[in-house]
């Protein structure tokens, strides 16, 4: 066996001391300041270096977890295909429905059909974003890898960030083909909504994140029994999200429930543009505000359930 090599301090791989960025990067960087007498505040520079090293380490850990999932998709075309399968299928069904209605009812149905397809696509953003995040977490449970992940220096916020990044990638892999299909097959161009579309998409995927964070919290609390929520929970919210109809259609006692969901405001805003050509800044602001509130609450729930899982020892047994 070859002897264990001793690397230079700058490369940070000295076996006994050089793994933590804060301890291994500073010596090399500190040399810049040492003895020059010209640095007005060496302490401040050292703080900056430490902060940079910590941030670099965080980014590497986030990328490490993303790489674990990307490597899976890189080798498996059925997995890649599955990402786009349901969004494309949904687009086919609703696209043909819209085409049929347009053929029978004329120009009025043309606008309604556009609202229908816009609803499908934006709802898929939430759905794929939520599933992308929750299922990436479940992958760790299914591969019995969670124990290794949580004994690494990966912080909970880094885990959540990696899951969010994966949800964006998975959402794009699912929704982009459906957008192209809508444009190619039904001549529906989602981008006619204008630049506000970007804000709609951000709000829709953000809703997917807080729902996913809630699902992950429930999995941490209830284990495998809560797994089906990763697939089903958003379907339960769909009737209140006003995807295909305005909130006013709902019974009055259900309307406050709908208006508590960012999606309902996004869809009201989308229909405002498609039907009346008006951008409703009120609905946009409401969706953004609600997302902040729900994300905050979901983060608190996740932090609490993660702490409780450490109290109960559930991080070792989860999924069994």
């Amino acid at each position: 066996m070859a002897p264990l090599p001793v690397s230079s301090p700058t490369t940070c791989v000295i076996p006994t001391t050089c793994v933590i960025p804060t301890t291994c990067v500073i010596p090399a960087q500190a040399g810049i300041n040492r003895g020059t007498g010209a640095d007005p505040d060496p302490g401040l520079r050292r703080d900056d270096t430490e902060r940079d090293a910590r941030m670099t380490a965080s980014l590497r850990r986030i990328w490490g977890l993303m790489y674990r999932h990307i490597a899976l998709y890189r080798r498996s075309w059925p997995r890649l295909l599955e990402l786009a399968y349901w969004p494309v299928l949904n687009m086919c069904i609703w696209g043909f429905t819209a085409s049929f209605l347009t053929g029978r009812l004329g120009s009025t149905a043309l606008v309604a059909g556009a609202a229908l397809m816009g609803g499908v696509l934006l709802w898929e953003v939430t759905l794929r974003g939520q599933m992308g995040m929750a299922i990436s977490f479940l992958e760790e449970i299914w591969s019995r890898n969670l124990g290794h992940i949580f004994v690494s220096p990966l912080r909970p916020w880094e885990l959540v960030t990696a899951l969010i990044c994966m949800s964006i990638l998975r959402m794009l892999a699912g929704v982009v083909p459906a957008v192209l299909l809508a444009w190619g097959l039904y001549a529906f161009n989602l981008f006619t909504l204008g630049p506000v579309l970007i804000l709609f998409v951000i709000n829709m995927i953000a809703m997917g994140w807080w729902v996913a964070l809630g699902v992950i919290s429930l999995i941490l609390r209830h284990g495998a029994g809560a797994e089906p929520l990763a697939w089903g929970v958003l379907f339960g919210l769909a009737p209140f999200a006003a995807v295909f109809y305005p909130v006013s259609v709902l019974p009055s006692f259900l309307q406050p429930v709908a208006l508590a969901l960012p999606a309902a405001h996004v869809f009201e805003g989308m229909r405002g543009i498609l039907l009346d050509g008006v951008v409703s800044h009120g609905h946009l602001a409401a969706a953004t505000g609600l997302n902040f509130v729900w994300l905050g609450l979901a983060s608190l729930l996740f932090a609490y359930q993660f702490h409780q899982a450490r109290v109960r020892g559930a991080l070792l047994t989860i999924g069994e």
Partner: peptide, 25 residues
């Protein structure tokens, strides 16, 4: 009693943990 992701290759698994532990090189 704790496994590594079974569909990843050995090198990919080690690369994942190399990143998680901030291993340079």
């Amino acid at each position: 009693y704790i496994a590594l992701p079974s569909r990843l290759t050995v090198a990919e698994n080690l690369r994942v943990y190399g990143h998680l532990y901030n291993v340079h090189g």
